[in-house]
Amino acid sequence: MKKMSVEDKLGTNVFHTDEVNSHIDVDKAYPDKEEIMKVVLACPAACYTYENDTLSFSHLGCLECGTCRVLSHGKVVKDWNYPDGTRGVFYRQG
């Protein structure tokens, strides 16, 4: 099968995203690269990217799994919650 980017895959989902408020608070200046790479590799939605020694994060596309919190709470992930009710991903298959 032709390879799809994570972005294109997420494009098939329905999201009711809160464009403004993020439900995850990320410390983008976190100094430990090893810690950063864990969330970069583990996030199924590729919300975390690390390029040129800079961590970027976007909550758009988040699948609300909790992986980044479990891996790095108190470190890269300062605060994590589910989005407000009715916001976020809306699975039609599941």
Binding site: T12, L63, Q93
Partner: peptide, 10 residues
């Protein structure tokens, strides 16, 4: 196959 949904969960 045609992708209809992509999901993640613990």
């Amino acid at each position: 196959g045609k992708l209809v949904e992509y999901s993640g969960h613990l």
